[in-house]
Amino acid sequence: MATDAALRRLLRLHRTEIAVAVDSAFPLLHALADHDVVPEDKFQETLHLKEKEGCPQAFHALLSWLLTQDSTAILDFWRVLFKDYNLERYGRLQPILDSFPKDVDLSQPRKGRKPPAVPKALVPPPRLPTKRKASEEARAAAPAALTPRGTASPGSQLKAKPPKKPESSAEQQRLPLGNGIQTMSASVQRAVAMSSGDVPGARGAVEGILIQQVFESGGSKKCIQVGGEFYTPSKFEDSGSGKNKARSSSGPKPLVRAKGAQGAAPGGGEARLGQQGSVPAPLALPSDPQLHQKNEDECAVCRDGGELICCDGCPRAFHLACLSPPLREIPSGTWRCSSCLQATVQEVQPRAEEPRPQEPPVETPLPPGLRSAGEEVRGPPGEPLAGMDTTLVYKHLPAPPSAAPLPGLDSSALHPLLCVGPEGQQNLAPGARCGVCGDGTDVLRCTHCAAAFHWRCHFPAGTSRPGTGLRCRSCSGDVTPAPVEGVLAPSPARLAPGPAKDDTASHEPALH
């Protein structure tokens, strides 16, 4: 009773807030009518008042009428009001819900409408889902798969039609296919003929059939049928067999079959498995989609049935006599038709004709302190090069084509190399640097090759510096006499390219 009084008091307290929050009759008014909170006449009256005075006034009048009803109607109103779709449509209802007392429970059932309790003993237990329907569909599909699609060729003596089998029958139906081979029951999904010589313990000319048996419980189990008994694959494991010639990621696949039913060829011909030897223990289905393919039931050349050999690369099948050149017997292992072999060759040939990528240039590290003349020119003028003790990398590039010797140069053309002071002394051009340390401070000019250098860098042994005729380390061993002091540049003949010694390969005349 306390809860009923509290709900009535809360409705009177929030009546105006609810009326202002509800700006549309749908969905709240319609939901109240659906849950029998508002009768039909009051529903029509509220809609009429909404058209006349507006939605807030109409709902305020409806809530005032609701306060005169019993506690069950008020409880049902609060339940409908706080439904998710009403809270989404009328956003101003959320503060009312947040301020609702926590001790007021809106989930209690309506009085007088409590459903009768059902004894637990009368409640049926839930049924577990079964796979009976899938099993029945598999039974119905198996006879259809064994139905012949056409008439065999005159040369083929193997013609068999499976008798119709009602689904209610649980007995196995067997077809006489000759040579002791028996087909599987209607619940078998796949059958492959297997030679009895590969099964340990088999006697006589009995041949087993590799099947997948579907049981009534819905589970499946792969086994071997020899005669009327089934054997699990673990009985046929043979770890010492060295003649297993397995197909790549293979499961067994029928390579020879008669049109209309699988079996042995007439005249004692023995149908073979995809792999010879003992049956392997793992009978998992292969991951290669080509091995799941269903080959055609007629020859791809003459479009006739009979004894066919199936290609492992495509769905086509052929007569042995229709092949070019014809085959006398079934080859062992994987067999592919000429079209598949030709496609494989065409895929391999473009790969062989692809040009080989060019090898990157060989990189040879230079000892610290040495650099090529090109690196000396590329440096920024007026700045010493940083990191001189790091190992430089010199790339061996292809030799350029031989060019004509340089033409003779006048001494005026070499004027930018040297600057003559007032006393006739050779001065260095701006930006000249030593080729060893890279520093341009207090550098000297070689009178023979006009290269800038430090005496301490080229002659670290402490050799005394002569007063005139300074030469760098590369030119100090040259027998050519030094030019007379005061000459602007060496003779043009000295600039012609010539053979250089091994220790002077990195010091070429550089223009500054």
Rank of each mutant, 00 (worst) to 15 (best):
T3V: 04
A5Y: 04
A6P: 02
A6W: 06
R8L: 01
R8N: 00
R9V: 02
L13I: 06
H14I: 01
E17R: 00
I18D: 07
I18S: 02
A19E: 04
A19S: 09
A21D: 00
V22K: 00
V22A: 02
D23F: 03
D23P: 00
S24A: 01
S24D: 05
F26Y: 00
F26K: 00
P27M: 00
L29C: 01
H30M: 08
A31Q: 07
L32S: 01
H35K: 01
H35A: 01
D36N: 11
D36S: 03
D36W: 06
V37D: 04
V37K: 05
V38K: 03
V38Y: 05
P39W: 04
E40H: 01
Q44E: 00
Q44F: 15
E45G: 02
T46I: 04
T46C: 08
T46D: 00
L47T: 00
K50C: 04
K50W: 02
K50T: 04
E51F: 00
E53D: 05
C55R: 03
Q57L: 14
A58F: 02
A58Y: 01
H60N: 02
L66E: 01
L67P: 00
T68F: 01
T68M: 10
D70L: 00
S71G: 07
A73C: 05
L75A: 03
D76I: 03
F77D: 01
F77R: 01
F77Y: 02
F77M: 02
W78S: 03
W78K: 02
R79P: 00
V80I: 15
V80R: 00
L81R: 01
N86D: 00
G91L: 03
R92I: 00
L93G: 01
L93P: 02
P95H: 04
P95E: 07
P95R: 10
I96Y: 02
L97R: 07
D98P: 05
P101F: 01
P101T: 00
K102W: 15
K102P: 00
D103C: 12
D103P: 01
V104H: 00
V104K: 00
Q108Y: 13
Q108M: 15
Q108K: 04
R110F: 09
R110Q: 03
R113S: 10
R113D: 06
K114Y: 15
P116H: 12
A117R: 04
A117S: 06
V118C: 13
V118I: 10
P119F: 14
P119H: 12
A121L: 11
V123A: 08
V123L: 13
P124I: 15
P124A: 05
P125Y: 07
R127K: 07
L128K: 01
P129A: 06
P129E: 01
T130E: 03
T130F: 15
K133H: 03
S135L: 10
A138Y: 14
A138W: 15
R139C: 04
R139E: 09
P143K: 03
A145G: 14
L146E: 08
T147N: 13
T147I: 12
P148V: 14
G150R: 02
G150M: 03
T151Q: 13
T151E: 12
T151N: 09
A152Q: 08
S153P: 15
S153D: 06
Q157C: 13
K161H: 08
P162V: 03
P162Y: 15
P163G: 06
K165R: 08
K165P: 00
E167H: 01
A170T: 07
E171G: 13
Q173C: 15
R174K: 09
P176T: 09
L177P: 04
G178M: 15
N179T: 15
N179S: 07
N179G: 10
G180M: 04
G180R: 15
I181F: 15
T183Q: 04
A186Y: 01
A186F: 01
A186H: 08
V188Q: 07
A191E: 02
V192Y: 13
M194H: 09
G197P: 13
D198Q: 05
D198A: 10
V199G: 11
P200H: 11
P200L: 12
G201W: 04
R203W: 03
G204N: 04
A205I: 01
G208E: 04
G208R: 02
G208C: 04
L210F: 10
L210W: 05
L210Q: 02
I211S: 07
I211R: 02
Q213W: 00
V214A: 06
V214M: 03
S217V: 09
S217C: 12
S220L: 10
K221Q: 05
V226G: 07
Y231E: 06
T232F: 01
T232H: 06
P233V: 04
G240Q: 02
S241Q: 10
K243H: 10
K243V: 08
N244S: 14
R247C: 11
S248A: 09
S248C: 10
S249T: 03
S250F: 12
G251A: 08
G251L: 13
K253A: 13
P254V: 13
L255H: 13
V256E: 07
R257A: 09
R257M: 05
R257I: 07
A258P: 13
G260H: 13
Q262I: 10
G263W: 13
G269Y: 06
